[in-house]
């Protein structure tokens, strides 16, 4: 009995510990690590949202950049052009991409395998083409600069020009999103997702409406990708049509694969490791993409389940 109890306690303990360490960072380190970790957390959120559809449902989407970029504009355009608050901007950064994801997903989930990959790329390409050419609204490839007004939480006003405040805001939102996704993949709903990934035909025969479940996962992933884009834009104070390009989705793919897809914790690790690698490598050589590509390919060949999968395999 004891080991099971231990196991049950392991995650909350680890989660609290990691969260506590991250929350303590601003007290020990200077601003650099806060801004760096803010970025890592944002990309980690992007990667876990991708992990939901790829790692759990088995849909390889190269179109998540569309939702990431839209999330950014959903924060930037209302605050800049309509004078709306940051809070409503953040809500929009979930709602608008989720709505688009519902539209894109409605068509895309009818396809499987390679066709699904291609259709998501095409939707993202439409997004970036429109974004780059509709310069009066989006600023095109030059982008939009905006200064987010303080976030009104009722009890407190959060000044988003302050690095520490932004860091805590991002940390809190990413932690909540992580718990939300973890809860979901462990719920009966998550079991259906995995059943679809493992054998779509069987899931259908058991009586699940496979398309509806896929669409649900796609919309949730789209909303969270949008939230990641919204937080990124808030921390940068900048939104750009270049964030809509399908190749930006490559970030999520790389982090998820290297860390271990279908584990949630893997993509977070992947984001942290790859970004740290890039950060330190950049002082040695400029060709960081070379290393990222090589790490990706060698992970696929040597540890197809990623770092987390590799570690779990060894433990067994």
């Amino acid at each position: 009995m004891l080991p099971d109890k231990w196991k049950a306690a392991a995650f909350p303990l680890a989660f609290v510990l990691v969260a506590a360490v991250l929350a303590a960072v601003p007290f020990f380190e200077d601003l650099f690590y806060q801004t760096f970790l803010t970025e890592v957390l944002v990309w980690a959120l992007f990667a876990i949202s991708f992990d939901l559809i790829f790692g759990y449902v088995g849909l390889l989407s190269f179109g998540q950049a569309l939702f990431f970029g839209l999330g950014g504009y959903a924060v930037a355009i209302p605050t800049l052009k309509l004078g709306m608050g940051t809070g409503s901007g953040l809500l929009l950064s979930v709602a608008v991409p989720a709505a688009f994801a519902a539209f894109v997903g409605f068509f895309s989930v009818r396809l499987t395998g390679i066709h699904f990959v291609i259709i998501t790329i095409i939707f993202a390409l439409i997004g970036s083409t429109v974004g780059e050419t509709w310069t009066s609204l989006t600023g095109g490839a030059d982008g939009l600069v905006f200064m987010p007004p303080p976030l009104d939480l009722g009890i407190a006003q959060l000044d988003l020009m302050d690095i520490r405040t932004t860091y805590y805001l991002v940390l809190a939102i990413v932690a909540i999103s992580y718990l939300f996704l973890r809860r979901m993949v462990r719920s009966p709903l998550g079991k259906v997702f995995v059943a679809i990934r493992e054998n779509e035909e069987r899931a259908r025969l058991i009586g699940y409406d496979v398309r509806r479940y896929k669409l649900l996962a796609f919309v949730i992933a789209g909303g969270l990708s949008g939230l990641a884009g919204g937080l990124y834009t808030l921390s940068l104070k900048y939104a750009s049509a270049t964030f809509l390009h399908w190749s930006v989705s490559g970030h999520a793919v790389v982090y998820a694969i290297v860390g271990g897809a279908g584990t949630l914790v893997g993509p977070v690790l992947g984001a942290g490791l790859i970004m740290a690698l890039e950060h330190y490598l950049v002082n040695l050589l400029q060709a960081t993409d070379l290393v990222v590509g090589a790490v990706l390919v060698s992970t696929l060949l040597l540890a197809p389940m990623g770092i987390v999968g590799f570690l779990r395999g060894r433990r067994k």
């Binding site: 600023g139 490839a141 982008g143 939009l144 905006f146 200064m147 104070k237 900048y238 750009s240």
Partner: peptide, 14 residues
């Protein structure tokens, strides 16, 4: 690059 400068420019201010 204008896009790069636009991205950097709010940081300069911040």
């Amino acid at each position: 690059h204008s896009g790069v400068q636009m991205a950097v420019f709010p940081l300069a201010q911040q």
